[in-house]
Design a protein around this nucleic acid. Structure first.
Lengths: 221, 221
DNA sequence: CAATTTTTGTGATCTTTTTATCTAATTCGT
DNA sequence: ACGAATTAGATAAAAAGATCACAAAAATTG
């Protein structure tokens, strides 16, 4: 079930991209695909695609390509699409609330089940998601107990930079295993906790830099 | 003014992180800093930090470190913090509206000045940002004229995957130079246009994969 | 002011990632 | 069923990126 080879980081980062693309092919009723076409759609070299897939074994057939359904099923398992991942939003400011309400991080295997905030007034907030379910907001003091009660191991961190590290420490103490960090701070966590940074401002600044310095960037092919 | 060396991609991606950190130091009244401390805060190796800086020349002093103000001023220029970048949001669904209202991509040099949508009803939307300014929403048919009128060269793409490529083609035709792509599609653009992908779902899926396959990821130090 | 400490900047090296090329398996048309 | 066309998977090479380690420069100390 689990891969027996060590998967390179860069490959792991591409897996959700493959998964999304395969889903769209499947929905469109496309039955087979080859590495060249995948390459064109996702903008990585065809050799990279084949190499990535090969870490998981021989998934394709020479002279034929890849069977979309089989590949999709496989990556579905690899990405734990079968199991439901309960997620908590920590920091229910504008961004946190927006993520809860509109389920921007949306996928069948991810469900935001609760929110936390330092401000006790936020407890009165009744945040309804798109399905009409009310997502409870708790005080940050109840982090540990509430997370454990529902067995939540993934957190979305949407607190201001100032309190990001302090709240992170509490999340770690509460047994959180993964943090999607929207704060502009690079948080410190022990080795056993995974962090994925999603900084909206950083992305935009990088883009502007790339636009302004087009000629100066290496391999901006 | 512009760097005379080719800046590696990886370095360019770290510039906004340095900038944010330096700003926070400056605000805190800290006058000098060394690569080791920077390294601890931003979680990249100290040698990487020094190497990154060195692409822009000798910014530090041996035996002393870096002067925070001077370094901040320098990166401020590198990242065009002095010039105002007008940005348009294309696709005023939940995510697009949230970005416009709450200015999540917020920084002094970035201003969202207009929105676009296929749905003509959206034109009646009066979206006020946090400063109380009303951001107009136009029909996507007016893309070219409105963008050119205000000299907008950066777009935030928040349309559904289905229409992402079609809208991208229109943006390119309208002369857009950079796209911050929130759609799950890897869009195709000509060589002269820069794309930065920010996929919320992908980030979360990658995180879950990293959490579930901790032992299988290479150099998850 | 000499000795010691600090800390940068960078050549050298190592690691990771990407790309190119080759080989052999499989398909497909006839 | 055969031969040409296709295409994955493997191997090799190249490129990009991270890290090591140390000389040189500057600061600090006694």
């Amino acid at each position: 079930m689990t891969a027996d080879t060590q998967i390179p980081r860069a490959t792991a980062q591409r897996l959700p991209i493959y998964y999304y693309y395969l889903s769209s092919l499947h929905e469109a009723g496309i039955k087979r695909i080859n590495s060249t076409e995948i390459s064109e759609a996702i903008k990585f070299d065809a050799a990279t695609v084949r190499r990535d897939f090969s870490y998981f074994g021989a998934l394709g057939k020479r002279g034929f390509g890849y069977d979309v359904s089989a590949l999709l099923d496989f990556f579905s398992k690899v990405l734990s699409q079968d199991k439901l991942n309960k997620v908590a939003v920590v920091g229910t400011g504008n961004l946190g609330q927006a993520l809860m309400k509109y389920n921007f991080v949306h996928s069948s295997n991810i469900q935001i089940v609760m929110g936390f905030d330092v401000d006790p007034k936020k407890k009165e907030l009744k945040i309804d998601n798109e399905k009409g379910e009310t997502i409870p907001v708790y005080s940050i003091g109840d982090l540990k107990s509430e997370l454990n009660k529902e067995n939540v191991t993934i957190a979305i961190l949407t607190v201001p930079g100032k309190s990001a590290q302090e709240v992170t420490d509490q999340l770690v103490d509460a047994g959180i295993k993964g943090i999607l960090n929207f704060s502009p701070i690079r948080i410190t966590v022990p080795n056993s906790v995974r962090v994925q940074n999603v900084d909206l401002t950083t992305g935009m600044q990088t883009l502007i830099y790339f636009v302004d310095n087009f000629e100066n960037i290496k391999s901006a092919k």
